[in-house]
Amino acid sequence: MTVQAVRVHRFTQPETLVVERVDPPASAGGVIVAVEVASVNPVDWKTAEGAYAPVGEAKLPITLGRDLAGTIETSEIEGWTPSDRVCAFIGQDRGAQATRVRVTAEEMTRIPDPVSTDIAGALPLAAMTAWQGLFDHGGLETGQRVLIHGAAGGVGHLAVQFARWKGCTVFATAAADDLDFVASLGADTVIDYRSQRFEDVATGLDLVFDTQGGETQARSFATLKPGGILVSTLDPDEARAAALGVRTVPRWHAQPDAVALGRVLDLVVEGAVRVEISRRFKLDAVEDAHRFARNDHPRGKVILVV
């Protein structure tokens, strides 16, 4: 028996993706999940273009995808049984955009009954990026002032809700068409990044969460109070931060964390967090999904229905 998988054989711009038949994964002490939903994230098209440093040509061909939701088919882990609904953020050594995937206990959590498979599949990587950025790297605490850039995107819309849940004052940047959406997520002040200078509105901040880099990051340092911190998913300007008396953290990548992912799912059940799904694509339309996610700047997440 073979499985279908989204594969990259060579780096190209725009990327060339192939949905092909490959050997099924071995359980190897984990579980085999029949994937129902896989998420589309920026790391996917960056990997396919050769722009994601941890994946070089020596690792090709590679199956894309880092997060998924589905049902366990076989298990070699005590306490996990076939028919369990799970979602997971998996390591780069495998690929979630496939019909079957091996998952470890450290990567997966059960999907609570009220949560749909679509929502669970859209959540893991974006949620862990936002959660780890704000809390693990940024040390965000109740009562602090925080600015979230790209607040309508997959990571950003979750970061806004996590900061609101934590009891922070939330500033957020977004395009004009997304201002009402971001406000509905709980942002106290929403800034149109095209017509307003966010540094004139958001000041005295404890934390800036940056997924944009470039000029946006450079201008963000001025919004921080002395000792404040900028947490970026892109290379931070550490010299600029030091000169201004603020902090940053070295470039980091989100890591699988089943405990934290389970906490986020609890927040979804409680109604404290919602996951926006912009569009759904079939697995064989993965190139269309990548183009839409990269070029159309959708609200929330894009998913593949396997």
Rank of each mutant, 00 (worst) to 15 (best):
L230W: 04
A151S: 09
P14E: 03
L134S: 07
S232D: 04
G30F: 02
D84N: 15
A243C: 07
R279P: 07
F292P: 02
K225P: 01
F135G: 10
A69C: 09
A187P: 05
D206P: 03
R94K: 13
Q161C: 07
L123Y: 01
V182E: 01
E73T: 09
G56E: 03
Q97S: 11
V273T: 03
T16I: 14
A254P: 02
P250H: 13
E49G: 10
V115L: 12
A120F: 03
A218Y: 15
E107Q: 13
V55T: 08
V101I: 14
A28I: 11
G167F: 11
V170Y: 01
R194Q: 11
A159R: 06
E106P: 05
R240A: 11
H137W: 09
G153K: 02
L125Y: 00
F198Y: 12
R299H: 08
D177F: 10
S75C: 11
M128N: 03
R145M: 09
K59W: 10
T47Y: 05
A176L: 10
C168L: 05
L185P: 00
T233M: 06
T63R: 07
G65W: 05
G167T: 09
T2C: 14
G154V: 02
G70R: 01
L265M: 14
E107M: 00
T211H: 07
G91T: 05
A187S: 10
D296I: 10
S232E: 02
R263H: 14
R110E: 05
V86E: 04
A126M: 01
V275E: 06
A241D: 02
L283K: 05
G227E: 09
A222R: 08
G70C: 04
T16W: 04
E78W: 03
P54L: 06
F209G: 00
G50V: 08
A258N: 07
G150P: 00
V302P: 01
A175H: 07
L125P: 01
P82I: 11
R263L: 15
D178W: 04
R164Y: 06
T81R: 15
V103A: 01
T16A: 10
D118E: 14
A218W: 15
F181M: 12
I191L: 11
P298D: 09
E238P: 02
E57W: 08
K59N: 14
S116G: 12
A28C: 12
G153E: 06
A172H: 03
P298N: 07
G133M: 07
T216F: 06
D23E: 15
V190G: 00
P82L: 11
T74C: 12
L304A: 00
I32M: 04
E76N: 08
N295R: 08
I62S: 09
A98N: 07
T248L: 10
R280H: 13
T223W: 03
P61L: 11
P24S: 14
F198H: 02
W165H: 15
T233G: 04
F171Y: 14
V155G: 02
Q255R: 13
